[in-house]
Amino acid sequence: MTQEYTAESRVDGAEDNNPPTGRFRTFVDRWRGDRGIWRRGVVLAALAVLTALVMILHAQIPNRIGNLGSLMETFLPWLGLLVPVILVAALVRRSATALIALLLPAVVWVNLFGGLILDKSGGGGDLMVATHNVNAENPDPEGTAREIVESGADVVALEELKASAVPTYEKALAATYKYHSVQGTVGLWSKYPMTGSRSVDIRMGWTRAMRATVTTPRGEVAVYVAHLPSVRVKLHAGFTANQRDNSADALGEAIADEDIRRVVLLGDLNGTMNDRSLNAVTSQMRSTQGAAGDGYGFSWPAAFPMARIDQIMVKGVEPMSSWTLPRTGSDHLPIAARIELSD
């Protein structure tokens, strides 16, 4: 009886140790014997191809109707979420057609956005800069200012400064940043001397952009701060971004006319680098996140970041690293970057 019990135990144990293989063989056999795997899932396959085409041809989606192209480009990386959804649906439907078609959007997404997953940041850098839309309704401006100081940035831009909160920020930042200038609702604080501070007209009727020359130990840098108009998604009007687009054109013109070779743009552009409507700026400057960032660096909304609408862009300098800073009382995350001031 002992031998019989042992033999039975070994047989049962062998079956228990190999259930995944058995299930996999059963799964393969079901697919192999299913003549409908090529006929089912045609809709899923079409959805996969459409997803790939939208990512490939996003620049061809017209903006004439509700700025649909810009809206799509703002959230373009999130189209990748359709890949696992279609994958699960294709497996449930047992559709070989859908699975093969799914390779197309998967490859396109990896080609467009896969590189952003990697950490491209490096060491070094002569200057650390940061920018933060502090939110006019921020309940804790003092705490927000402390977070900025603790970041260690040499130059800091703040946007959406409420007039009544400006003295609070000035007092909290004064000990660390000897030089500063506030123009309208934007401001710039620096550890290094600042000259030539002035507002920049971005066609809004009030001041939401400025520039100043910061004299670092490695030379002068023209620093621009901008808060482009907000955008909204409305059922009757679509993506209302026309005012932002006009302001982006004006900002691009100002930067193009800059005399100083080294230029840094800090601010809330209310748009991503994929948005063709920001081309006046993005065509002449590099995003520090794209060149030297760690991950996507989404900055808004702070509770669940879905897009990087806050930007640090450079011209005539080399980005070394870029990252988001801890959350403050704002609905945006602050972002920072280290740059090399090449000769």
Rank of each mutant, 00 (worst) to 15 (best):
247 S>W: 05
148 I>T: 12
3 Q>G: 08
52 A>S: 12
260 I>R: 13
131 T>K: 06
328 T>Q: 03
335 I>W: 09
62 P>Q: 08
213 T>Q: 08
182 V>H: 03
34 D>I: 09
327 R>C: 00
113 F>Y: 15
300 W>H: 14
43 V>S: 05
47 L>Y: 00
57 L>K: 09
335 I>H: 08
202 I>P: 10
243 Q>W: 06
137 E>L: 14
280 A>K: 11
297 G>T: 11
131 T>W: 01
83 V>P: 06
146 R>W: 07
145 A>F: 03
257 D>T: 05
11 V>D: 05
76 L>D: 05
162 K>P: 13
70 S>P: 06
300 W>N: 09
46 A>P: 08
188 L>Y: 03
19 P>T: 11
115 G>T: 06
330 S>R: 09
43 V>D: 02
274 N>T: 05
208 R>T: 14
46 A>S: 08
241 A>C: 04
91 L>T: 05
17 N>Q: 12
162 K>Y: 08
125 G>W: 06
251 L>I: 04
272 T>L: 11
65 I>A: 14
216 T>S: 09
107 V>W: 10
187 G>L: 10
331 D>I: 09
1 M>Y: 01
187 G>Q: 14
220 E>M: 10
156 V>Q: 08
227 H>A: 02
167 P>R: 00
132 H>E: 07
192 Y>E: 14
31 W>P: 00
157 A>M: 07
21 T>D: 07
84 P>W: 04
119 D>C: 12
281 V>N: 12
182 V>Q: 12
134 V>W: 04
89 A>T: 10
39 R>A: 14
316 G>R: 11
94 R>P: 04
343 D>M: 13
273 M>F: 06
206 W>D: 15
282 T>C: 09
203 R>P: 00
144 T>R: 02
321 S>P: 10
290 G>R: 14
7 A>T: 13
337 A>W: 01
258 E>D: 11
100 I>W: 11
272 T>Q: 07
290 G>S: 12
161 L>E: 06
106 A>T: 15
295 G>M: 09
221 V>Y: 01
106 A>V: 11
120 K>R: 15
307 A>W: 00
253 E>S: 13
80 G>H: 02
204 M>W: 04
285 M>L: 15
166 V>A: 09
46 A>F: 02
239 F>W: 11
